[in-house]
């Protein structure tokens, strides 16, 4: 169980678990060796000790026999992890075929096959966020539905970029929600990075445009722009987002350089519609999956990965500045399956 030694807003920032994204190496590689204990930590966070798919697997198949009951149990586990009916059926269909061809001899072979099938879907999505130096400021726009974790993720990423040596600025593009500006300001203070804001009710596109100006004047490396939460079905608000992007392009035709869609792991199949429609509106370039520190498995990313192959840049595993990790397909799937090399 996660310990809460210090209250969340007073915690000392601690980056020893973050993978380096050094300024000298802006194209952060995802292939580096994980920090020691990374898999264990991730697994602990995601599975809280009871490894998801393999839990009780031995009991399920006394003598290692593979039968319909086992397959049904695996299917149940995929479904309850929000993998979705369609993706689950596809994965299970593959397993059943291999079973028919007698390729799977025992329970562990089944788990391996499942792991491989999941990896096949997720591996193409493993691509770290890259900070380019050819454009300044490198502008990253945060979008997503209400309460997904945009502002918090932005705060966490600011901490990370700063510790990696990038000069960073925040733009308070949520001018709608009560105290959204102040929430972002507090993240600015925590990270000691400047925040550009206007009052509540201001034009969000103008706020971000001004921030880009100000960042240019100060030769800032990265600008992180927050936006108000909006449901993807709200056409008016989606149009507002399009306008924000149009106005950003007036300041820099190559911007935004990254559009991060923040998804709450607790959301079910609607996340797929979120990915589709935000992508349609503003061209999403990466996903962040938040709140993986709960029991929600975030399996819907398999569904999104199947459909859209969008890179998954980060996962959120808590509310503190350091609770942000790079998404790694192998670690993610290994952690989910409890089959990592790192014994728990």
């Amino acid at each position: 169980m996660r310990q809460r030694e210090i209250k969340r807003d007073k915690r000392v920032q601690n980056h020893d678990n973050c993978l380096p994204m050094l300024k000298s190496n802006p194209t952060t590689s995802n292939r580096e060796q994980p920090a020691p204990g990374f898999i264990k930590r991730l697994r602990a966070r995601i599975n809280r000790g009871d490894s998801w798919l393999t839990y009780d697997l031995a009991n399920l198949v006394p003598g290692g026999k593979i039968d319909e009951e086992l397959l049904e149990e695996l299917e149940t586990r995929l479904l309850t992890a929000d993998v979705g009916v369609e993706a689950t059926e596809e994965i299970m269909g593959g397993l059943r075929k291999r079973l028919k061809r007698n390729e799977l001899k025992d329970a562990s072979a089944v788990v391996d096959a499942l792991r491989t099938a999941m990896l096949e879907i997720l591996a193409p999505c493993e691509a770290a966020l890259q900070i380019g130096t050819e454009h300044r400021p490198w502008t990253i726009l945060f979008v997503g539905v209400n309460g997904a974790g945009k502002t918090t993720t932005l705060g966490k990423l600011a901490a990370r970029l700063k510790s990696d040596g990038f000069s960073t600025m925040l733009a308070a593009g949520d001018t709608f929600r009560a105290a959204a500006v102040e929430q972002l300001r507090i993240w600015g203070e925590r990270n000691q990075v400047p925040v550009v804001s206007q009052g509540t009710g201001a034009d969000p596109a103008a706020v971000i445009f001004d921030a880009m100006d100000s960042a240019k004047a100060r030769n800032i490396d990265v600008l992180l722009a927050d936006t108000a939460g909006r449901l993807q079905s709200q056409t008016g608000l989606m149009d507002e987002l399009r306008k924000i992007v149009r106005v950003i392009r007036k300041s820099d035709a190559s911007a935004p350089h990254e559009v991060l869609l923040v998804l709450d792991a607790g959301i079910g199949q609607n996340a797929l519609s979120q990915a589709r429609q935000f992508n349609e509106a503003v061209g999403v370039t990466g996903l962040v999956l938040t709140k993986l520190d709960g029991t929600a498995k975030g399996g819907v990313v398999l569904n999104i990965a199947r459909a859209m192959k969008l890179p998954i840049r980060f996962i959120g595993i808590g509310e503190k500045a350091e609770d942000l990790d790079i998404f790694r397909a192998t670690d993610f799937v290994d952690a989910l399956l409890g089959a990592g090399s790192d014994p728990s």
Partner: peptide, 26 residues
């Protein structure tokens, strides 16, 4: 007392709807 500006968020909303608000600190 945890989420940044959570108390202020409620205060603003209380003003909007004309409810009383009891100030508190993080």
């Amino acid at each position: 007392v945890y989420r940044p500006a959570a108390i202020l968020q409620l205060q603003r909303l209380a003003e909007q709807v004309g409810a009383g608000f009891m100030a508190s600190e993080a």
